[in-house]
C-alpha cells in the first residue's frame, strides 16, 4: 500500500510539472512579447520596458520558468498588474469560496446519486426504475447555471429561505456561509448526481451478473444481502473514477455558477483578469485549478486502492 501511494505521489509530481510547463508555455511563450500584449496597443515604450523588467522578461525562458514555478512552490504567485497586490492574497480569499462550493456539490452529488443508483438497480426493469432513469436523463440535460436561476426564483424570491446571492464570508460564521453556498451547490450537483446515479445503477447491475454474486447466492444470501454485502463495494470501483472526473467539472461549474449567485470566487477574479489582460492573475489561478484537479485525481487513486486490494500491489 505504501509503495502504491509512493508511485502515485511520484506521478502526481510529474503531472504537476508537465501541467505547469503547459500553462507557462501558453501564457508566456505563445503571445510573444507578454508585456506589450498586456499593455495593449497604446502603451508607451517606457511603460512596456518597466513591465518587462518587472516580469523578468529580460531573463531567459528557463530562468523565468524556474522563478515562476519556484515562486508557486513557496506561495509567491507574483504581483497582479492591475490590482498591484500580491496574487497570492487575491487568490487566498477567492479560493475559500470556489473550492468549498465544488466540494459541497461533490458531497451532495455523491450522497444523492449512490442511494438512488442502488435503488434503481435493485428495482431494475420496474416502473420506479424507468421513472428514476427518466428524471436523471432530464437532470443531465439541464444547464446548471439556468437551474441556479430557477432555484433563486423559487427559494430566494418566492420563498425567502436562502439568500439570492452574495457571500457573507467565513468570518460571518459557518452557518450563514453554508447557507449562501447551498443553492449554488444544489444547482451544480443536480446534473452530476444524475450522471453518477446512472453510472452507479449500471455498475451495480453489471456486478450483479458477476460470478461471485452467484456464489454468494449459492451460500444462502438473499438478493438484497448479495447486493449489500458483495455488489456494492465492487460496483463502487468504476463509480470512483467518475467521481474523480466530476470534481474537475464541478470546479469549472463553480466558476461559471458564481456569476449566477454573485459569489466572490475565483471565477470573478479570472474573468476580470482576462478582460484586463492581467496574465499574471490568469496564469496563477489556472495553475491552481489544475493543481486542485490533479490532487483530487491522486486522492481518487488512493481511494481505489482502499476499495480494491488488487491494486495495492502495483
Amino acid at each position: 500500500m505504501i509503495r502504491f501511494a509512493a508511485f502515485r505521489l511520484l506521478s502526481l509530481c510529474l503531472s504537476l510539472l508537465a501541467a505547469s510547463l503547459v500553462v507557462f508555455c501558453v501564457i508566456e511563450v505563445i503571445p510573444g512579447d507578454t508585456a506589450s500584449f498586456m499593455l495593449g496597443l497604446n502603451a508607451s515604450p517606457e511603460a512596456e520596458a518597466a513591465l518587462r523588467s518587472e516580469l523578468g522578461l529580460d531573463k531567459g525562458l528557463v530562468a523565468r520558468y524556474l522563478a515562476w514555478a519556484g515562486g508557486m512552490l513557496t506561495g509567491d504567485f507574483g504581483t497582479s498588474y492591475t490590482y498591484r497586490v500580491p496574487v497570492a492574497d487575491l487568490v487566498a480569499q477567492r479560493i475559500l469560496v470556489s473550492l468549498p462550493l465544488a466540494l459541497y456539490a461533490l458531497i451532495l452529488s455523491t450522497l444523492i446519486a449512490l442511494p438512488v443508483g442502488l435503488l434503481a438497480a435493485a428495482l431494475r426493469g420496474r416502473a420506479a426504475d424507468y421513472g428514476i432513469m427518466g428524471i436523471t436523463q432530464l437532470g443531465i440535460a439541464v444547464p446548471n447555471f439556468w437551474f441556479g436561476m430557477l432555484l433563486v426564483l423559487a427559494f430566494a424570491i418566492t420563498y425567502r429561505i436562502f439568500p439570492a446571492g452574495g457571500f457573507p464570508g467565513w468570518e460571518a460564521g459557518f452557518g450563514p456561509a453554508m447557507r449562501a453556498l447551498t443553492l449554488p451547490a444544489v444547482a451544480l450537483a443536480l446534473p452530476q448526481a444524475s450522471i453518477l446515479a446512472r453510472v452507479m445503477r449500471s455498475s451495480v447491475i453489471e456486478t450483479l451478473d458477476a460470478d461471485f454474486i452467484r456464489t454468494a447466492r449459492a451460500k444462502g444470501l438473499s438478493e438484497g444481502q448479495a447486493i449489500r454485502r458483495h455488489a456494492f463495494r465492487n460496483a463502487l470501483i468504476p463509480v470512483l473514477t467518475i467521481i474523480g472526473l466530476q470534481f474537475s467539472f464541478l470546479l469549472a461549474g463553480a466558476i461559471i455558477i458564481e456569476n449566477v449567485f454573485y459569489l466572490p470566487g475565483l471565477g470573478r477574479l479570472i474573468f476580470q483578469g482576462i478582460t484586463q489582460r492581467d496574465l499574471i492573475v490568469v496564469e496563477s489561478v489556472v495553475m491552481l485549478l489544475v493543481f486542485a484537479v490533479i490532487t483530487v485525481t491522486f486522492l481518487v487513486d488512493i481511494a481505489y486502492a482502499l476499495v480494491d486490494p488488487r491494486l495495492r500491489r502495483r
Binding site: A210, D211, F212, T215, A218, K219, G220, P309, R310
Partner: peptide, 20 residues
C-alpha cells in the same frame, strides 16, 4: 436451504470469489 443443506461450486474459480 442454500449453503446449509445444499452447497454448490462453479466452473470458473478466477471469478467466483469476491475480489475485495
Amino acid at each position: 436451504i442454500r449453503g446449509n443443506d445444499i452447497g454448490m461450486i462453479f466452473q470458473e474459480p478466477m471469478t467466483a470469489l469476491n475480489p475485495v
